[in-house]
Design a protein around this nucleic acid. Sequence first.
RNA 1: GCCCGGGUGGCGGAAUGGCAGACGCGGCGGACUCAAAAUCCGUUGCCUUCACGGGCGUGCGGGUUCAAGUCCCGCCCCGGGCACCA
Length: 958
Amino acid sequence: MADDNPRFRYNASLAQEIELRWQDRWDADATFEAPNPAGPLADVAKLGDRPKLFVLDMFPYPSGTGLHVGHPLGYIGTDVYSRFKRMQGYNVLYSMGFDAFGLPAEQHAMQTGQHPAINTEENVANMRRQLRRLGLSHDKRRSISTTDPAYYRWTQWIFLQVYNAWYDTDLHTARPITELITAYERGERSTPDGRAWSALSPTEQRELIDNRRLAYVADAPVNWCPGLGTVVANEEVTADGRSDRGNYPVFKRNMRQWMMRITEYADRLIDDLELLDWSDAIKSMQRNWIGRSEGARVRFASTAGDLEVFTTRPDTLFGASFMVLAPEHPLVDALVTDAWPDGTDASWTAGSPNPTAAVAAYRKLTNAKTLIARQDDGREKTGVFTGSFATNPVNGQPVPVFIADYVLMGYGTGAIMAVPCGDQRDFAFARAYSLPIPPIQHPTDAWFAEHGLAPTLVTAKWPKAFVGDGEYVHSANESLTLDGTASIAEAKQLVNEWLETNGRGHGTINYKLRDWLFSRQRYWGEPFPIVYDADGNAHGLPDSMLPVELPETDQFSPRTFDPDDANSNPESPLDRLADWKYVTLDLGDGPQTYRRDTNVMPQWAGSCWYEMRYLDPTNTEHFADPAVERYWMGPQSPGDPGGVDLYVGGVEHAVLHLLYARFWHKVLFDLGYVSSLEPFRRLFNQGYILAAAFKDERGIYVDAFAVEERDGAFSYEGRPVTREWGKMGKSLKNAVSPDEMYEAYGADTLRLYEMQMGPLDASRPWETRDVIGMYRFLQRVWRNLVDEDTGASRVIDDKPADEVVRLLHKTIDGVRTDMEAMRFNTAIAKLIELNNHLTSVASKLGGTPRAIAEPFVLLLAPLAPHVAEELWASFGATASLAEAPFPTADPALLVEDTVELPVSINGKVRARITVASDADEATVRAAALAEPNVLAHLGGSAPKKLIVVAGRMVNIVM
RNA sequence: GCCCGGGUGGCGGAAUGGCAGACGCGGCGGACUCAAAAUCCGUUGCCUUCACGGGCGUGCGGGUUCAAGUCCCGCCCCGGGCACCA
């Protein structure tokens, strides 16, 4: 096919040639290598006195299918911003690594028998190629992979720091465990049972210490997922009780597992959110997840001893008319009686002959349900009576004790006091089991009005529980009275004081957050740097023995089970490797045989600190040199938490990654290893690229690229399909690869397209047919500056017209502001406008004046760096423009001589006038009132009012 | 149910309380071409008018204001998060 297009037109093949050439040159010249102040990458001369900026993307998992065009949205955004900031003189740290441990590589290994390391390496190489082709200005020396032993050596090292630390609740800080031991030895701290430290047996001493560590082994209720063959963290369980990976049922089971004491940091993790420049949405998700609630613990006496409950409404204690325990509550067995008390309501017995049988049957029923069923909302309340009564501490009333599955063992104390008049769940339970509902607050008139009810304390008439401030009634004993007050806050205070004084409880704070389950029974993860001696005691390995490398094997799979077999037990792949598992080491007591811990860390471990390895990736003495950490991440001013200056990523990591990383960072801060209080000072959540996906009549996704559209209807192979919008990806069969876009348009066009689609934080649908708009833009830019037929520069030395210079400066001003705020879409629009104007200038003058062309190319450079470099070189430059100064607007040129003002009458624009921009009000009035169309609308009558907004508009009221 | 976002042309989107729809796609008309593609130029919210112009328009209903997409009150719809958390 003959191509009679101009030889030097900017088309896909020219773009490709330019892009590959500049990518090679950037690498060869080390253009984007950022100097450090100390350590192996130190270059103090290059550092100079430039301000620093640390820009970070959430690093990707190196998937086998490579990137699709949805992935780089955030990466392009950070690259544009980084390039913009470099041109403003910043020393910018910008790199990207790979979060390469995890299930997909392991599953691939199981299927192919190939070691996951090999597959991971191939995937990483492919992604590096795709990212390089986008022209991202990464410092490639700083790229890491979490699976690299030189990296996970430090992950293991940090684990050991956590393991060798305890939390001092008085000083609110983590401290080395050795300081706790010293405090016990010196008697500065008394042991729980008051005996001297020296009086404890070595085993008792060890237990005491091990139970204080921030990483500890505990027999705790965990989420056992037989389908995956591993336990998973609370955060990895979906709302309907399934694993977020694989979607298998998850069961609560007690098992011995590694835990991290993140709960000690609950308050700081909430409170320090205020120091962060994050969206309120993410902050509230974190607060919500940590779930701090203030209330009280209250002890009710019973035949089985005190039953302790947690309540957020101690003020309603007088209305507590029954109690409910979780079916798994340890005191249930002691409470269950042999026979139903006289007069027991038939509905309380579930038809069983006695409480023992009723409780056993109910527990069996509960156990059979997964978490899904137990948490299913809108269910009828169910439960059975234990046969026992407890005593309400404030009024001495006997209250029946039930078990019911709406009370969860994992929250509070696993027991509640039920106040049916003031809690909707308790109200529903009371109604279902014919329990009395004693009123203790008089609801407000507004509440009664809302429910179409005359005010009454006859709760039988109430449609639901009353929650809120309302005057207390029947709430008094000899030493405490709430009657008369209507303030929850005040009443809580009074009750808490009474509980404390009378030894029946105390005010407290409760959290939803649980300790972090840290072990997994998989292969492809970081091994624990822990061994056990002959007595089964754990020992952290010394620094010199790190890393503990993953052993070779050809069996990567844990034993998996029937997904519904709740009673199966985990079996880690490392367990089978006896040669690795048993090892002779000298840990100070001479060579002995030890057994290695055969768990691996969860995938989140590697991403808990990766940003700090970018700082000093080749340092073998520290995970990052302290001076380097201080330079890039240290606090910049009093009250500043420090951390990454800009962290861009998806909102799906709102709780998991961001909470864990903050936790580790705070431990490292407490132990003095980092100067920053938080890892990520500013977080920006980018949107997603959505793409149309199509389902056939069976609900199966079909290849989106083979779907045909006719008159708004869609069909696939002649059969009708329905369209929906979803995140681009393999599973929806709608992924577009960046490679296709490089081929058809080049990387600069793809970059511009992704940036101009909309604001970075919004999700937007991908439309391949729209990409051409940015391609045409670059073509026009090129044509204005380069002769398409000869390839010669069209830049001329003519002085540009005043009006063009003004437009340039207006554009500079606008683009700067937009770039600063990461509004790249509007920055691009302004550049297009300027370029469209240059098109007419160039055709008039036969070229583009240098005084306009040069700043224009610099403005374009962060967005479309390859073509900008090429044009910059065509102007005669020999150096890259990567650090050329970003243009600055001359304020004098931003002021226009004349302005066009709209003249509106009663808010509707009827005419426009052009006046001097410094015209006084009288002049503007006169001009407005002289307009023919204004006169016509006035119809001879005088305006009632005339408003002149200087430089903006005129509004006439008539 | 609770907590966040968000509803603007055929589509993506733009608008410090001050000219709604910048910019891009698509559509329409034209140039170039034997023709088509590519490229370029013009035009494009809807209704009405030969035209000047006029009417209607930012999910719905009220309000504040000389002036509301923007602020306030009450709804509706969509997306996301949390949810028997005591």
